[in-house]
Design a protein around this nucleic acid. Structure first.
Lengths: 231, 231
DNA sequence: AAGTGATGTGTATTATTCACACGAAGTCAA
DNA sequence: TTGACTTCGTGTGAATAATACACATCACTT
């Protein structure tokens, strides 16, 4: 108790909406933690925590994410800053929200030091959330939808090798629409962004699918330039 | 000096990038103030200031804007939060940046209580700015460009009655490109967003121009829905 | 050998984008 | 009044992109 200021100050936190994609049935998912402390003890919430005075906002987001979920090195981008006066029942807290993209399979989502528990939920079926986290989540999903239509982000959500059908499922799952298979393939291939591999993906009693990977150079270029994906 | 916390806290500020559009030669402009206090005394800077503990971020932005520039009731939207550690030489300051749209002619930009001076600058020619305000400004301009292409925002920048040429100049000035007159008119009229008035705009020794106004209902609807303006 | 199930492919139709030039309507000055 | 000047306002054709749509292929299973 030794930091004193002339005027009262809000506490500053970061909160992260982590999206993952499961090519199987689950589709697009979000990572939530169960709170171990009051307020909202035992409620589900977005991972996050206080910003330290000597770290940037991005650093704080990455640090909290790793502490609470074990995830690191993921795509992370600032979303919006939430600053209504009574977001937190304890005191004035302003939260800088981030959203992140990753592959659920990639890292173990289990063991976390701070939070009691971390779990993936399908975005179509999330539990009630602490604070105004439902609002933050909704904003993140809207942003992700927007992003997907004008920048390639599939790379962050898919494994290194994937089939066109998986990529299509990703788009359908995020955008919440059905997409025509032939038109989808025509379009994504026209970007000259995907490199076909010699390998094929075998699964089930049916024709195996061609595997692709992203061309990292063109991927980055397109991410900067944007493209406008409408189907 | 009576507010004490267990951990050190960053100070929270808002900064506003106010855009105005002058149908004349000046084009797109930004409103800057000359700082009356150290640090960066007498440098140009974005209007802004500290967030009070009992006001929302939006409220803080509007309050500071009015205090420093006299502007109120303008279109205002959160842009991004800047939180690198040494943005401010004095101490850790995190700033929530906003951008705003208005008509320079609308309000008197003169008399301000806090800031020594407030002035419009063409966006193509702004002076060196205090802190990381140049970066904030650049982000705002990028955002405005993006916004213009997928939402109608002209309403906020143009007078109630305007000609198609003025609207086109606005787009050209923000996007930094030339646009074909016929294609532009075809496109904007196709949105069924503009209502032709019985009046005409006379100026100079040439054919007078038809005046239009926005249809407020359709304008709001399109602002929600978005449209995608590419020319 | 026949059945199953996801993969992979092409074309015709329609809408959108883009490039492009000139008469019309006023003002002003001779 | 006439002509010069300047911005306003308009249409078409070519090229490109978007959409709708159906069936043979391949590997595995029984």
């Amino acid at each position: 108790m030794k930091h004193t200021y002339e005027y009262p100050r809000a506490a500053l936190t970061v909160d992260c909406v982590v999206f993952g994609f499961d090519s199987g049935a689950a589709g697009l998912q979000v990572l939530l933690i169960r709170r171990g402390l009051v307020p909202f003890k035992d409620h589900w919430a977005l991972p996050g925590g206080f910003v330290r005075v000597e770290e940037t906002l991005d650093d704080a987001a990455r640090r909290e994410l790793e502490e609470e979920t074990g995830l690191k090195d993921l795509f992370l981008e600032q979303l919006y800053t939430f600053g209504t006066v009574n977001r937190d029942p304890r005191e004035r807290v302003v939260s800088v929200a981030y959203y992140a993209l990753t592959k659920p399979a990639d890292h173990t989502t289990a063991a976390s030091t701070d939070a009691a528990e971390a779990r993936w939920f399908p975005v179509t079926d999330i539990p009630p959330l602490a604070f105004d986290h439902a609002e933050i989540f909704a904003a993140a999903l809207t942003r992700l939808r927007g992003k997907l239509t004008y920048q390639p982000v599939g790379f962050e959500l898919l494994p290194p090798k994937f089939t066109l059908t998986q990529l299509q499922r990703l788009y359908e799952s995020v955008l919440g629409t059905d997409i025509d298979k032939r038109n989808f393939r025509k379009k994504v291939l026209s970007y000259d962004l995907l490199i076909p591999l010699k390998e094929q993906h075998r699964e089930g009693a049916h024709r195996p699918a061609q595997l692709f990977r992203f061309d990292p150079v063109k991927y980055e270029r397109l991410k900067k330039k944007g493209f406008l994906f409408e189907l």
